[in-house]
Design a protein around this nucleic acid. Sequence first.
DNA 1: CCGGTTTCTGTAACCGGTTACATTTGGTCA
DNA 2: TGACCAAATGTAACCGGTTACAGAAACCGG
Lengths: 356, 356
Amino acid sequence: MPSTTGAKTTVTIREVASAANVSIATVSRVLRGHETVTDSTREKVQRAVEELRFTPSRLGRSLAERRHAANGIVFPDLSGPYYAEVVLGYEAVASDLERSVVILSTHGRAAPREHVLDLAGRVDGMVLMGRTVPDAVVLEVAARGVPVVVLARQPISVSDLPVDHLPIDSVNADNTTAAAELARHLTAGGARRPVFVGTPASSPDVDERWSSLHATFAEAGVELATTIPADLSEDEGRRVGTELLSAHLSSWRDGPAAPAPDAIICANDELALGLLDVLRTGGVRVPHDVAITGWDDVMAARWAGLSTVSQPMRDLGATAARRLDARIRGDNTPAQHIRLDTELVVRSTSTAPKRS
Amino acid sequence: MPSTTGAKTTVTIREVASAANVSIATVSRVLRGHETVTDSTREKVQRAVEELRFTPSRLGRSLAERRHAANGIVFPDLSGPYYAEVVLGYEAVASDLERSVVILSTHGRAAPREHVLDLAGRVDGMVLMGRTVPDAVVLEVAARGVPVVVLARQPISVSDLPVDHLPIDSVNADNTTAAAELARHLTAGGARRPVFVGTPASSPDVDERWSSLHATFAEAGVELATTIPADLSEDEGRRVGTELLSAHLSSWRDGPAAPAPDAIICANDELALGLLDVLRTGGVRVPHDVAITGWDDVMAARWAGLSTVSQPMRDLGATAARRLDARIRGDNTPAQHIRLDTELVVRSTSTAPKRS
DNA sequence: CCGGTTTCTGTAACCGGTTACATTTGGTCA
DNA sequence: TGACCAAATGTAACCGGTTACAGAAACCGG
């Protein structure tokens, strides 16, 4: 019976081998369930493994097998439900496929090249989200032979790829369709002077939303003229709300003295919620005076009655994980660009047609 | 000038060595900035490294150095802000310390022993959250010589530790103080028939909250008699809400026909929010008829006006990461058990003293 | 110009596994 | 019983780095 005190020494396959009086090759075979091993030998080895509480070193194994059995993912943040859900969906699938997940958060900024490359050295493939990694680095990783899937950003354009390059898949939520739907919903509600809050350049998703809104409003003869830059946080929403309030309050309160926005489309929910709070507190009637919308459909949006767009967040992660797995297994077909459906969720911050 | 086409072959240190016409030892020295190397040699090597776009293999390096430069963390879930923030705080610190983070989510259930041990083989130390890992497995990991810090669960009791064992630190939010404060707040508001919603056995945190509430109510001569088991989700809140509604609606509506609860303390915010929604929709006046409280202070709680308790989530992760780093560096002092402060946040679901 | 240092570089033995190939063992059949 | 073949096991060469130690080169003063 083995002693219970924590042995400090790490046992290796050689010690097991000599304890069982066989060669290391045989131990390895037993461990992998490999080839044919005599029952009696197998038992000897298994007994030794148990007594020594042996667990093979992952490093040794990975080095020999030339695979990590791990996937990487780079994302900007984990606050807010969006990225958390994506990562969770990714982890769930990866875990089912017997792969560990190594994460790298860039905490808002772009990931340092060395960190991304270090990650690349620890995994069999990785997912890169949004603007966390510049195209040049994406290509560099792929050039090292590490499969890459990009998520929530535009695909790597084929012309950028060297000929003998690994295909780089992309997975995205369909911002375009939902944004168009949103624009039509708002014009139908009477919006003529919409405003966008958010920084299109900051994220590919935001960029797509803006473009599609702009185009769809234009079709209805409405111009999405103003874009107010803002980060994707509640505080930023408050800031913008305060500015709008001081600029347009009299107009909203006392009728159209000056042309005030009649719809404020925010790049995400946090932004919209902060803004909504400030405007309502300031006496603005939403949606009567102005409609407000967000994006993502976070839990708080339900409580605030915020109109928004819901995305299949977990599915985004899961789909990326599956695509990546295919590439790791050697799938060499042309790059796929997958779009997942989103859904417009109309609640009380945008319903009523206004100022008929 | 190097060709731009993605070379399929992995370059190794030996190839760099022969390209630079030196030995692999010298290449290694240059790479690590180690010992003394002549300037001219260093340059030769660096040129070769650049031309071959060489990056040392992390596996090879880790195997030789006998360190992974990675930390693990096991958590139940990532939906809801709680764990996400904890993980984020953990990642931020680990990243500053030049360590990657390998995650393992148990998706609500307990982690399979093999998964935890596999993780243990990939990292220099790991954090285990809540009930994700049974004590026996925690000890097994520690016995392998992998430093462990437990988070959001009671410490491993010293008597369970073999003598020559690594110390196991713990980091927790102070559930006890906040729960006591909450109980006093509610009794001051007039609560005499409080009910707890949640399953104490499901998580150490919930257990602590329940115990402290129970004890503090008792001091005021109030008995926390009823505990309604429920998972920590909004849906569960709805379910429980519906049950309570059908059991007590007439009492709440038409006066104290039968003894209905006058305070419902939920184990977390999601639960409380679901419950709150159902009760309010059902015509129950909160807090007039009944007070409702949650725990965690998620964003939606602000919008719902939910009274709750806020925790230093990011700090929990960060603190655990620092403690773990100390252990990895060889700190061998007795186990520390760190408690971080929490704060009672009183909003509109519990303010008014009721039924004077 | 030589022996003794000092400084740089190379050789080779690790780290802990996997696996191709060689070798041994044991069984079958003539 | 011996020849032959298949099955079981062992040997050793990897995987890609680090580093102790030894050897070579350069420098120094006498």
